[in-house]
Simulated scan of single mutants.
Amino acid sequence: MPDNSDFMASLEQATLKIVQQTAANMKTACTLVEWDAKHNCPVDQGQLRADIHSVVHFDDKKIVGTIGNSVKYAEAVHNGSDIYAKDGNGRKDHWIYKAEGGKHAGWHTTRGKKPQPYLEDAKMRNLSKIPGILAGD
């Protein structure tokens, strides 16, 4: 029986290089969407925009790129809040709150904020470019 261990090793190395290149292409695609989201993100003090980030994870079965925020109010900005919340998942009446610092400091009554889906919009604006980036074009 012929020894094909060198062939198998080269095949595994080639596969690893392809996966690594595709993961790098995924990072490029995520960076494109991340930049667009930052460019169109609503800004008060800039924390929300500054926190937009992306990360790529891969294993032997899949490559996943994720773009998002970790700021605690990011979801309320993106999906809306209270009576305006996406899918009707918010409070149904008005409420009073006090904002500390920034251009909106002081007491306010609100019925909520309308959605500003800067991440979803960035994804949709760049959706046609992503397959080419992933392919390495």
Rank of each mutant, 00 (worst) to 15 (best):
P2K: 15
P2Q: 14
D6S: 10
D6Q: 11
F7Y: 12
M8T: 09
E12P: 00
Q13R: 15
Q13C: 02
Q13G: 07
Q13H: 11
A14Q: 13
A14E: 11
T15L: 13
V19E: 00
Q20Y: 00
Q20G: 00
A23K: 00
N25L: 04
K27D: 12
T28W: 00
A29I: 01
C30M: 15
C30W: 00
E34M: 14
W35H: 12
W35N: 14
D36K: 07
D36R: 12
A37D: 03
K38Q: 15
H39P: 00
N40E: 10
N40Q: 10
N40V: 02
C41E: 03
P42D: 03
V43S: 04
V43Y: 03
Q45M: 12
Q47W: 04
L48M: 08
L48S: 03
R49L: 09
A50E: 15
D51C: 07
I52L: 12
H53I: 06
V55K: 15
V56R: 00
H57S: 14
H57F: 10
D59I: 01
D60P: 00
K61D: 12
I63F: 01
I67M: 05
G68Q: 06
N69W: 09
N69A: 08
N69G: 04
S70T: 15
K72S: 14
Y73A: 05
A74W: 08
E75W: 07
A76N: 05
A76R: 09
A76K: 09
A76L: 15
H78D: 09
H78A: 09
N79F: 09
N79C: 09
G80W: 04
G80V: 08
G80L: 06
D82P: 03
I83S: 05
I83K: 12
Y84C: 02
Y84V: 02
K86I: 06
D87Q: 10
D87P: 03
G88A: 06
N89W: 03
D93W: 04
W95E: 06
W95I: 03
I96F: 11
Y97W: 13
A99H: 11
H104E: 08
A105T: 04
A105E: 15
G106C: 08
H108S: 07
T109S: 10
T110P: 02
T110E: 08
T110G: 13
R111N: 10
R111K: 13
R111W: 15
K113S: 15
K113D: 12
K114P: 08
K114R: 15
P115K: 14
Q116T: 08
Q116G: 02
Q116E: 14
P117V: 05
P117I: 05
P117N: 04
Y118R: 04
Y118E: 02
E120R: 12
E120K: 13
E120Q: 12
E120N: 08
D121P: 00
A122T: 04
A122M: 06
K123D: 03
K123C: 06
N126W: 11
L127I: 14
S128H: 11
K129T: 03
P131K: 10
P131Y: 08
A135D: 11
G136H: 07
D137N: 14
